[in-house]
Amino acid sequence: MERQNLGFTIFLYVCAALLALMILAPFAWLFIMSISSTNDLVSKPLRWWPVETDWSRYRILTDFTPNSHGAALMSALGNSIKIAAIATVAALMVSVPAGWAVSRTPAVGWSLWLVIGTYMLPPVALAVPLYMGLAGLGMLNTKIGLAIVYLTVLAPFTTWLLKSGFDPIPRDLEKAAAIDGARLDQMLRIIILPLAAPVIGTAALFAYLLAWDEFFYALLFTSDYRAKTVTVAIADLAGGRVADYGLIATAGVIAALPPVIFGLVMQRMLISGLTTGGVKG
């Protein structure tokens, strides 16, 4: 809009600034905490900016000598990266075909709603059966075991997301490909999946973040360095008699880095509007 009055423009910028503030403020506070001295963090009234910056905790957490805080956090980071990756890849392998099938066959749409209905159940209701199941399979405290549990959480969500992503891809394209002689796999590989790439990227990103941030199941189903994830490892830091808030905050900052990097990489896939131009004028 070219003819916009000044007041409205200011209003828009204020709204945008408020949104940015709401999203960034907690992270900013986390970072400030990580470089504040313990004295600054417990003083009253609260000091919003440390008297002097203290980077020592970053040194503690990047010190990998065995049995240190740093080694525990690093192994947990590694576990988290692997578990989230396995769960995300598995979720996509399940939900790409499922999402496409539901999108193309509205008659079976009810099944998706049924699955999404299980989302309404609180995780704690499923905790006991899942625990017994994993125990029976001997998969407690394993990365694969936790990844399988995450798959049950991620797959309904990604299927639903991908279905909405497949919906706007015109069916005429599939008919044309069928007449052109493409097999089902060729049609999906050459035509449909490239067109759905942005939404597949979005699904992967959100699935990864969901798995990364999960705490409850990870706490229940893992017990040591072999499978413990970073969310649990951070909670462990608060477990002693004296909680060092600064150390927890520092671990939080470090734990935020992998998903941020993953997000930046995936961002390139999230370009929408790829379907324009194929149909109509």
Partner: peptide
């Protein structure tokens, strides 16, 4: 099957593959 009928079809929506 459609692909073996030796028929070609032009769609109202053109149905061109946008990514090719």
């Amino acid at each position: 099957h459609p692909k073996n009928r030796d028929i070609a079809m032009v769609f109202q929506s053109y149905a061109l593959y946008p990514n090719l």
